[in-house]
Nucleic acid binder design. Sequence first.
DNA 1: ATGGTCCGGGG
DNA 2: GTGTACGGACCAT
Length: 879
Amino acid sequence: MLIQILDVDYVMVDDKPVIRIFGKNGAGEAVCGFYEGFLPYFYVAGENAEEVLKDEDLNFEKVKRNIILKHVPQDVFKITLKDPSKTPEIRDRLRSKGLKPYEADILFKYRFMSDMGINGMNWIDITGPGIQTESVSINKIIQIKKMKAVEKTGNADLKTLAFDLECVSNRGGIPEAKRDPIVMISILFSHDYKGTDRMLLSTRSGKGVTYFETEKAMLETFIKIVNDFDADILTGYNCNNFDFPYTLERMRQNGIRAIFGRCKQKTVFAKSIGNRHKVYMTGRMIVDSYTIVKKDFSLVRYDLGTVAKNLLNEEKIDVKHSEIETLWRGNDIEFERLAKYAMRDSVLAINLLRKLDLTSKYIALSKISGTLLQDTLDGGETLRIENYLLREFNKKKYIFPCKPEPEEMGRRMREREENFLKGGYVIEPKKGLHSNVVVLDFKSMYPSIINTFNICPTTLTRENGDDVIKSLSGAMFCKKSVKKGIVPDVLENLMKSRQAVKMQMKKETDKEIIRVLDAQQWALKIMANAFYGYLGYLRAKAYYIDIANSVTSYGRNLIQNTSKSIKKMGYEIIYGDTDSVMVQSKKIELDDIEKEMVKIVDIINKDLEGILELEFEKIFKRFLPFTKKRYVALCFERDGDKWKEKMEMKGVETVRRDWCELTSETMKRIVEILLKENDVKGAVNHFKNVIGKLMKGEIAVQKLAVTKSMSKSPERYVGMQPHIELVKKIRKRSPEETPGIGDRIPYVIVKGLGLLSKRAEDPMYVIEHGIQVDSSYYIENQLLPPLERIFTSLGIFKSELMGNGKQMGIMDAIKNHVKAAKETEKEKEIIISSKEMNGFVCSKCNDFHRRVPLVGVCECGGEFLFSSPKGTATTIVAG
DNA sequence: ATGGTCCGGGG
DNA sequence: GTGTACGGACCAT
């Protein structure tokens, strides 16, 4: 029978481990395969290992294996035991006698999967008799006699259950699982469950609600539903860190065993690490939409409301957290609103998963690396690389080192301090707004370097000789002809596979298959690119600083040489970073530019070694660099016989948590005017225009609001913060509207005297009462900081931006100051001095203000002086 | 620059 | 479970 592997674990039966493979067959049925007779083992180097462990019931076998830094097979012991859980103890005994264990920290399930050549989410063909057992909640159980991996592209039909909790705390703030009960559980099913796709469990009765007298009864039913529906995936929004740990704790409080995985003996449990949790469940997977969205999409905020609106264009039901208790205790209509709210959250969680197809990429990563999907989702790159490398090492009779122990970590850290890891080479960008700049980059630079120069832990050698290549940073590696490295080989395969998948995609017409293939080629790229980082990661099992440094030194050399050659051909280099150079074209039409550059690329490529290859990547019709690693560009990329246009921003955020909409909007528009319209004056005018509108009060108040959340009661805040001061204000004037702990509070800064925080106001209140917002604040603190950087790179200073009629006190002062300086051609110094200026001091009362407290004069009526960091006021502001 | 702390998401 | 460990923004010396 063919099954797709969802999870693997083992249990001890009669003192022997039995591996259990949880999967799904093509018909969408859950299947479990039992595999007996596989025993845990590991290796140790050192003659007296047998002597050290003579009292243990172990099997010793003397074998020859390859190890890193030795170039002939070594004698080692293969130690086989019966119980996987005994390994750490035996491993540590060996270590305490100075012996070096290998592969002694590999989870038993991964030992098995690696040896059998089976991967997470891949298909296997298992054959054997069917058996009956009460240990798992699955009907189809096969005693595996034969097993083999099978190539199959598609995925089994997976059942998903989304859930969401509501609980009330009578003390305000986040409910405490030890104390506050769950009052509602909403559930949404991906597949029909008893004629419905949703259920709402609650300890209060109402319309459309399944009522329970006690929380205990409700939780027991929840368990029953999960098991009955037999979900493959459980999801929720932030369920890893809230819903699961909370549910599990409530089950504990109620004396219920959390048996809702596919093993009837193992409970679902959560381990807490700080305020973070990791949830373990056998046979099913937990996919938290929040975790993935946060990783895969760039948004300002990640609350479910924002996420649903931006990514799905679906609305969350608007219930403030502080309202939940009121609604729960309220009348029927209020209760119904809470019920709808609860249900919607489950709907959104599952919609995120399905409509955004959040799992495909991770499934592809699992298939390639071998890691189980759950671990691919929870763990990082290191886990995937090590899982993959273990298999590749073993194929070549290499044994893999263990995780570094504290002593080794110490050594690595000291070594790194003396001989630190150097990165890529960055060419200083040429200032200004450029047109027709071409990006040439090295195709998979680091993987190609590793492959070309045979850089690998298995080729690293300390003995010089004819068959050795000395890298630019001084490390030595065996020549390919003598010994091909495992990592170089693996990378070549990954890159070749990716090309093959891309070719296949071009021929394919089925949308669903194209989607899977696209995820696959993406995952192959991700895996290939992760190797360099892995080899330089301090905690990696196969970390060697020489290796990481060799890779980057070749990279720097390549980019420098390439840049030099292109200059020799008579072209100007505008910018370059690590694996790319940006060249000034002499043509104007996109097609001409491409032809011109392809010629250059061909010349460069003739002299490159191995699989290294420079590529024409794209054209920046307009290119505006600010500093190293920060630029905006209007980019044209080839798309068949057409050109695809897009805006590209590197290191420049157009949205930030603490910026109001006006700032983001203005920034986007100005970048657009500069890049698309190539109109510097137009950009300046737009900026002036926005400022003009702002000062005339023509900007919608909502666009000026910044939202922050209140995590504790206002009294407990030590410093002064605008949104907290606003809460205090609201409490005084309309206590019934006071926001609660955890609520998000939007505010705008209004005109008036006194501290900034004291001038925070509710946007709605501002509109209703026609209060004026503090335009100076918005100019100085919201608009100028990000935009000034852009304009400065074009040689336009604050003075020019702020000029034009309107008297603005402080602004005018700066303007005059800059003007005076300009006359003596000393703009640069001004930029520096205005950067160093960190506040204002009143000339009369000596009061220090970090920000301009509006209208340019101090509260006492005195004028301001700029103040430098050292505290000395330097420049007098003219009134 | 570097180091520590706080907070996110959820209710 | 052959456990193993967040990450970015922001402040403070």
